[in-house]
Amino acid sequence: MLPHRSRLSVLVFLAPPLLLFGGGVLLPIVQSLVLSFFEWDGITGLDFVGLENYRALLLHDDVFRTAFGNQLVYLVICLLLQVGGGLLVATLLMTITRGREVLKVLYLMPAVISTPAIALLFQRIYSFEPEGLVNTLLGAVGLDALARPWLSDVSTVLTAVSVPEGWRFLGLYTVILYAALLSVPRELEEAASLDGANAWQVFARIRFPHIMPVFVTTLIMATTYALRGFDIPFLLTNGGPGQASELVTTYMYKTAFTSGHYGSASAISVIIVLECLVAVGLILLVLRRKAD
């Protein structure tokens, strides 16, 4: 603490960030919360309805229920690809001696591409007519029977819109987890392998416990990002066909900006926030307890 600071100087430095954060983040959160107790079409007056928006969503809205289930599938696929895949690739990187820095950069490349560009790319990768990359590849290995229009087939569309998101940030989590793996003391690993531990044991008993704090952080990042995942499903299928790839986030967007039910949309966005908080709480509860 500086001895000669005045109250005014603290205010001068603190005001801009508080204004930006208050106006751009905190105020909207509070407004969403308030608005979720009202029914409002944006034109006529506000109607206080209490918890009715939540009740309708949770008890009577089949689309919401489908969207919620879909979001969970989306979450699982993203976690498998990003955290699972990232951990695997980071571990693999530890086994080679040259080119690791270059590989890290190349793995990160998809994270630099904007979501509309990725959506365009995958629309073509999945396409059936003209034959896209996936179907050509299946044909080449003799699995023609599996070829299909991935984005309009109800049974595959949800996976198809989830994979690009997982793929996009695989490199990001690889880089983070790799940095953590590097910080594991080499002597511990060496001592363990001298004692006869195999590769898996070294990983499970030494490396993984050591990177646990970073692993928890990446898990939280990946989970909250997946729960708010929106762009790629919105751009690729906009929730279709039917509600086969509808996520809570795309449903919220439609409820607000297509149907104009701002109250109900706010309730959905509050639910998304709650989902994130619950997920973070669960992760901390389960993994912290395990670590103790």
């Binding site: 960030p17 708010r228 607000a256 701002y262 949309a265």
Partner: peptide, 19 residues
């Protein structure tokens, strides 16, 4: 400020649009 790391951006869309 820490709160802002966990909060999804979607929650700001409707209120900001109205404001």
């Amino acid at each position: 400020f820490l709160l802002g790391i966990v909060v999804p951006v979607q929650v700001a869309l409707v209120p900001l649009f109205i404001d």
